[in-house]
Write a protein that binds this DNA or RNA. Structure first.
Lengths: 139, 139
DNA sequence: ACTATTTCGCAACTTTGTTGCAAAAAAATT
DNA sequence: AATTTTTTTGCAACAAAGTTGCGAAATAGT
């Protein structure tokens, strides 16, 4: 695991620091997306708030993670797939947010349908966020 | 115009106050969605920040406006269509945000496709936000 | 091992959103 | 139309979220 993490950082020309390794590891351990607060409250480790903000921004810039638009407008981040590269995200999959446990999933195998835009509108990116009950919360 | 505004407020059992009339009027004058800051910086009128927050929340509760999920996670509001009622929004249309002028449109005639969820996931609501170039920014 | 560069953590600050409460305005009542 | 009741407003104070500058510390390059 440690080697994978270090490798990802190096591939993206980032200095391998403890904060970056630990935060990236959190993403790899987590099933769903993480918010800034999730990382800050990570009991194992204490990270400075500013360091978290800067690390997340760096990862987004490098295409390691991407932000997920949520209906309650809170910022969440999830790992990108391999196709993403610096400055160029290809996250055309659907996101799912559970109403009960609030976990955010990337549904990699549900792809975004292409929609016909009205005259004059040119679509460049489509974000789809589905909410409902996830597989762990089904009674 | 004033009568329409007053009528909407009365239909929703809201006291007709100056702030509510003016803010609701802003929405009716605007082509796109409005953020809190747009209303606060409305040159014509000065509203207290707190009043704006509370008025927007009231309008959302009554089904007069709805929030739009954006990829940059800023909160925007737009007028609901007639079918919306208190506590029960029916905004299953697609939203469009222009990369250039940042205007947010409700594409009322583009409906949200239904997607097949993976086993165990139960979809309750689907939000679609398309970004690109709007009809006013085409060169 | 030493030097140059990058990153971190602290402090201070800005922006965004919330809560309690007295004053003002709107609605209901007489 | 005047008075009472209810609702809403605006202020202050606070809480949360995010940003910036800068010296100290850690990482990378030689």
């Amino acid at each position: 695991m440690q080697e994978l993490i270090t490798d990802i950082l190096k591939r993206n020309q980032l200095s391998v620091t403890e904060s970056r390794r630990k935060i990236l590891e959190l993403f790899h351990q987590s099933k769903g997306a993480l918010a800034h607060a999730d990382i800050e409250q990570s009991s194992a480790e204490h990270f400075d708030r500013v360091t978290i903000y800067r690390t997340l921004q760096t990862f987004v810039d490098k295409g390691i993670i991407h932000t997920i638009p949520t209906s309650d407008n809170s910022v969440r981040y999830a790992l990108c797939k391999d196709e993403c590269s610096a400055g160029h995200h290809h996250d055309n999959h659907v996101h799912f947010i559970c109403d009960q446990c609030d976990t955010t999933y990337c549904l990699d195998h549900v792809s975004v349908p292409s929609l016909k835009m009205p005259n004059g509108f040119e679509a460049k990116q489509t974000d789809v966020v589905v909410s409902g009950i996830c597989k762990n919360c089904q009674s």
